[in-house]
Design a protein around this nucleic acid. Structure first.
Lengths: 127, 127, 127, 127
DNA sequence: GTGGTCTAGACCACC
DNA sequence: GTGGTCTAGACCACG
């Protein structure tokens, strides 16, 4: 069963998108693998403190992307066959890499200052 | 006149927030300084291909933060007196530092892989 | 449920203000009482032929005045406790009294002609 | 020369409309007559403390209604021939009569209370 | 030309 | 279904 313990709700970005991103990052990290079971909509909505409809929307979009399979009466589970996992990881790294580099550069940081900034908050992120 | 040449419209984030962030990053970088003139709502909205009202909202919020001054009939301009510039830079570095470190860590990257990712896209960001 | 049957849209005055005034006059008249339910934004906007946002603005201002309470997913309702109703009535009578007397006087009517004018259209207003 | 001494600027209604209404009420009252001269745009804008463009807009609309005539280099003047004065007065009385009666009735006043309200503020309006 | 406001339509999260 | 927010276009007053 996939754990959502590390999930923290941000504001200013749609919740269903946060759920998508959380799962995709787990796939990229390898902590979420092919066949892993997702919590039911009801359980996850209670866990995150959001509306079941919002979880439902995230699951629907994941299914449209082919990243999960749902069978009525059974738990939904992750599908990473056919290079799906690699594709997700590649897309995520590229998007985030570009966005992060652009942000750091727009703030006028040198490469060294940027790397130092990452270092400063790196430990926090691991907790 | 402040340049928006480096601005690229993203999706999934409110446009007025992107304008806010772009300006704040410029302030943090020092490329935007005290007294600099902002493009008018119409000019900027045409430049970005968005509605004048969206630009207006960003400018209004900046004015509420005390970072710009607006007078009807005259160009709006940046106000950085009283340590405002430093405050903006500090806030921005902390927020982005945390967010970036969290994202990199959630993707399961080691510190070295994370720094390598930044490096890979760093040159792109400088162009 | 508060009725908007008697509402007629005028021009030259912001619609959201007309909605505000209509509700306040109802409160002053006593036809709108504490705890009464308001139509939802969608229902009222369809009824008046205006945008839901325009209704939303009127409701938001009323909430800032403390005259209504809104909870997501539930109908908004009128709050008249704490002498709110009396205050609304007093303000309304004074404002309208002044404005009406000024208009009648500017048109050069004598007091008798003014009263006669009211009389002429009084019956119409009651229908 | 038509006097604007009694003109008081209200808020929430376009200024150019207030100028139109002020003049029409004067025509209805008979204090403004055929051939009366209007102040120049520059003089009136200074008198009312508004922008010349705003006065210009009011004069343009009046001219489109045929209520004033402008000749370059000469003062604009009121034109009430052809029953224009009567028409203005009739329209004004009907519109205001209806609006006033409706407002009083919506506030739940009886006919007697309504007349008493007019009386209460009548003296104020004459000052 | 400038900034400010009003109205409009679509989307999001919630019950 | 509910309320709340974001984006869009037109209008107003002003320099």
């Amino acid at each position: 069963m996939i754990s959502f313990d590390a999930f923290v709700l941000a504001e200013g970005v749609p919740i269903y998108q946060q759920i998508l991103t959380f799962l995709k990052r787990g796939i990229a990290a390898g902590t979420i693998g092919d066949g892993d079971e997702l919590p039911s909509r009801r359980v996850l909505s209670a866990l995150l403190g959001v509306n079941p409809n919002t979880v439902q929307k995230a699951y629907r979009l994941l299914e449209e992307e082919g990243l999960i399979q749902s069978h009525t009466g059974a738990k939904s589970c992750i599908v990473l066959s056919g290079g799906r996992g690699e594709r997700v990881k590649r897309q995520l790294l590229e998007e985030d890499g570009r966005r992060i580099a652009a942000a750091l550069h727009q703030m006028g940081l040198t490469r060294e200052e940027a790397l130092a900034l990452i270092d400063r908050y790196w430990e926090e992120g691991t907790q």
